[in-house]
Amino acid sequence: MPVVSKKGQQMPESPIRKLVPFAEQAYKANKKVYHLNIGQPDIKSPQVAMDAVTLHSLEILAYTRSEGSEGYRKKIADYYKKNDIDISADDIIVTTGGSEALLFAMGSIADTGDEIIIPEPFYANYNGFATSSGINIVPVISKIENNFALPPISEFEKLITDKTKAILICNPGNPTGYLYSRDEIKKLAAIVKKHDLFLVADEVYREFTYDGAEHYSILQEEGMEEYGIIIDSVSKRYSMCGARIGCLVSKNKSVMATALKFAQARLSPPTFAQIASEAALQTPQSYFDEAITEYTERRNLLIEKLKEIPGVKVGEPKGAFYCIAELPVEDSDAFAQWLLQDFDLNGETVMVAPAAGFYSTPGVGKNQVRIAYVLKKDSLLKAVEILKKALEVYPG
Rank of each mutant, 00 (worst) to 15 (best):
C241E: 09
M256G: 04
S69Y: 05
R182V: 07
A166T: 07
I169K: 02
Q264E: 15
V3E: 13
R17L: 14
D342K: 11
Y123F: 14
G113N: 03
E100L: 06
S57K: 12
A336C: 15
T95N: 10
A390C: 11
K389R: 15
S332I: 09
D202M: 07
Q220F: 03
Y210H: 10
P310K: 10
L102I: 14
E155Y: 01
I191S: 11
E214Y: 04
M224R: 05
D78K: 15
Y79E: 06
E385Y: 02
V374P: 00
D183Q: 11
I118V: 15
R266E: 07
D86Y: 00
S5I: 03
A189N: 08
D90R: 04
A273N: 15
E100H: 03
Q274I: 07
L55K: 13
E145M: 01
L197I: 11
K75R: 14
L391D: 05
K193G: 06
V234I: 12
R17E: 13
E222D: 14
S108K: 02
L302E: 05
I185W: 00
S254R: 06
H195M: 09
N171C: 11
P151Y: 00
A259C: 13
A390R: 11
G134M: 07
D78R: 11
T361A: 07
M50N: 09
Y180P: 08
F272A: 15
E348G: 09
F335L: 06
Y238K: 13
I60R: 12
A213D: 11
K389W: 03
K389D: 09
V33G: 07
G39E: 12
K253F: 01
I386L: 05
E326W: 00
E222T: 04
F262V: 06
A356M: 08
S45C: 09
K187F: 01
I109F: 04
Y80W: 13
D114A: 02
V94S: 11
P2M: 03
F288T: 12
A356F: 02
D84T: 03
G134T: 04
A149S: 14
E225A: 14
D196I: 11
K194P: 12
L375I: 00
L55I: 06
F358L: 01
Y322D: 13
M50G: 02
G223I: 11
R244V: 12
S268R: 06
V234S: 05
E184K: 08
P15K: 00
V94T: 13
S45P: 14
A89W: 06
I231T: 14
I43V: 11
K377M: 04
D289K: 08
C170W: 01
F288R: 10
S181W: 05
S239D: 01
I153C: 15
L103P: 03
D342P: 08
E214H: 04
